[in-house]
């Protein structure tokens, strides 16, 4: 079986603090996998190691046919190139949206189409409008981020990722920064993406949503995978006391 995403023996520490020490994880094409666990368990760091926003200390990241092994020490030119190649086929949605405030919603989406993928302006515009349409933001294409609500900004953030046609999508707590009444509109879009057969790895605290859309849920604690199972199994048969405590605490 070809993997969409594979992490091999990934290690990361911040100074003396070990975040994780030898993580292995594989995601198949079309699979939706949710990383869950208490804050500080290393979920977000792990996600950010996949597109090298955090540099793993060592280990291998493979996204389809693009792979990169990291050893201790600096980056070579070739490795930096490979990192950009991996970033181009992964799309990350951030907790804080991170839209570029000087660009309109449309500009936020066309930016990388033009300046990373090299599309011409009319083509990028069409691609971007289709993506904005999909997240229900086509009517706001010419608004600036400051003129949008959090939920609207996040939907633009998702459109920005969608337009790039990433092969793996990474959602880093995509709804955690939203006011409760705005969570629903974003979950609706994420649910649509999950149902469409996209490969998704997400960090989330929305347990009901994770249970509903995930093929597998991966429970992390102190940088270790304590359980990796389909949602029903994880909920009915938690492998560990820590998993049980976490699940009962969040319900």
């Amino acid at each position: 079986m070809q993997h969409a995403l594979r992490l091999l023996n990934l290690r990361k520490s911040f100074g003396p603090v070990t975040v994780f020490d030898g993580i292995d994880l594989a995601v198949a094409p079309g699979e939706v996998v949710s990383l869950i666990g208490a804050s500080g368990s290393g979920k977000s760091t792990m996600l950010r190691c996949i597109n090298f926003l955090e540099m793993p200390d060592s280990g291998t990241v493979e996204v389809f046919d693009k792979g990169l092994s990291v050893e201790a020490g600096g980056m070579t030119r070739g490795q930096l190139h490979q990192i950009r190649e991996i970033r181009k086929i992964t799309g990350m949605v951030f907790q804080n949206f991170n839209l570029w405030p000087h660009r309109t919603a449309l500009g936020n989406v066309t930016e990388a189409l033009i300046h990373v993928l090299g599309q011409d302006a009319p083509q990028a515009r069409d691609t971007a409008m289709a993506a904005l349409e999909k997240v229900g933001m086509a009517g706001f294409a010419n608004r600036y981020p400051a003129q949008l609500s959090g939920g609207q900004q996040q939907r633009v953030g998702i459109a920005r990722v969608l337009a790039m046609r990433p092969r793996v999508m990474l959602f880093d707590e995509a709804t955690s920064a939203l006011d409760p009444e705005l969570v629903g509109e974003v979950l609706k879009v994420l649910r649509l993406l999950a149902q469409e057969g996209n490969t998704i790895l997400q960090v989330t605290h929305e347990m009901r949503f994770a249970r509903e859309v995930s093929d597998r849920m991966v429970f992390l604690s102190q940088g270790r995978i304590l359980q990796d199972a389909p949602p029903e199994e994880l909920f009915t048969n938690p492998a560990d006391e820590a998993v049980k405590r976490f699940l009962s605490g969040t319900h």
């Binding site: 597109n51 970033r87 181009k88 799309g91 990350m92 951030f94 991170n98 930016e111």
Partner: peptide, 12 residues
């Protein structure tokens, strides 16, 4: 975060 968003899409 705005810098990271640019890096994450593969900008040079």
């Amino acid at each position: 975060g705005q810098i990271e968003a640019a890096l994450a899409v593969g900008m040079r």
